[in-house]
Design a protein around this nucleic acid. Sequence first.
DNA 1: TTTGTTAGTGAACATCTGTTGAATAAATCT
DNA 2: AGATTTATTCAACAGATGTTCACTAACAAA
Lengths: 203, 203
Amino acid sequence: MSSNQKIDKRIKRTKKALQNALITLMQSHDFKAITITDIVKHADYNRGTFYKHYKYKEELLEDIIEEVIKDLVDSYRQPYQDTDSFTFNSLSASAVKIFEHVYAHANFYQLIIQSNALPGFHKRISNELKKLPLQDLAEIEPSPDIDPELHASYQAYAIFGMIMEWVEGGFKLTPAYMADQLLEMLKFSPVNSRFKIRSDLEK
Amino acid sequence: MSSNQKIDKRIKRTKKALQNALITLMQSHDFKAITITDIVKHADYNRGTFYKHYKYKEELLEDIIEEVIKDLVDSYRQPYQDTDSFTFNSLSASAVKIFEHVYAHANFYQLIIQSNALPGFHKRISNELKKLPLQDLAEIEPSPDIDPELHASYQAYAIFGMIMEWVEGGFKLTPAYMADQLLEMLKFSPVNSRFKIRSDLEK
DNA sequence: TTTGTTAGTGAACATCTGTTGAATAAATCT
DNA sequence: AGATTTATTCAACAGATGTTCACTAACAAA
């Protein structure tokens, strides 16, 4: 069933060991400060072995991320599992499952996002966008032609944005509440939105 | 008017030179492959000088980004400039201005996003989210209590998502069209959305 | 213009990087 | 089981890193 296409035992063992070593080191050290030498010393492997599998730390990290993403996708699909016709429940449940997945890997997400593994470009620019009163943008004459690719990217990043907010807020909200909020956003009709210019343009 | 609080001429000169050197090198080399030595050699400064101002390449890059973001904010605020009451035109115009800003700095955005300056975590996870049929999530009973912080982050990342799609599509769309699409998204009433499960769950 | 301050230089250092080659160990295949 | 393939080791290398030092050159303030 799984794609275990004859991968050498040693490779699996080594990669797992290196992954664990990196995760462990990231608990206590900034990502940038962790050296390849640190990782292999901690995992008790030769430095050359690292370079046989990875070009740099980031590649090792992406390998780790890959597994978490697998679980994310699985989580999303769970409600659909034994259904071949659509029900609202399964759809709503999928939303919940996504946030439950993140919650289950809370430590990991916190680690990835807070460590400067991703030099904060998207964080930086998103934070700036957040300051702008974009929420007030609304209410124009209709026309139902939305580019599906743009819309997909819009939605994907929007949810990622919710997750970022959740993570950086220290997971104070429950997964159920997060899912609820997402559904709320989606049904949010901009007709209701109040129009006023923010007067607080300080800094 | 500007916050030029007596910064040593030499610092400005040096930083600008280093920034220019990095940008130039990024045109032809992968970010990861550019060394500090490369940068200072290209800018004709001593290596120690680099470390007096920056800890690592990423910090230098963030300095560059900062200026672009300044222009982004300025662009957004332009339509509001001489207005103290809200008009739809100024709001719509702000949306246009954002995308015009990105378009004006197309090379820069392409450079930043395509170079692996930001190890592709958000890219990776967002792409995965894009594959999930999240657009179909919709149509639930009403309730108008949306967490403003979550909503802000949702919106900010959503727009960032549009920009990402635009950039990676090679800027084939016009800024006006992008702005139009954004406004379309915002007014998009999910009541219209068709409900069906994707049957293509390959891979 | 002089004085105090600080940015930039050049050199040196230990450490880390990325790569290589020959030897060894552990896996896979028949 | 033995034969073959290949992952891992160890040592060595040139180059890059990150830090420090005393020296000088350029700037700011008076």
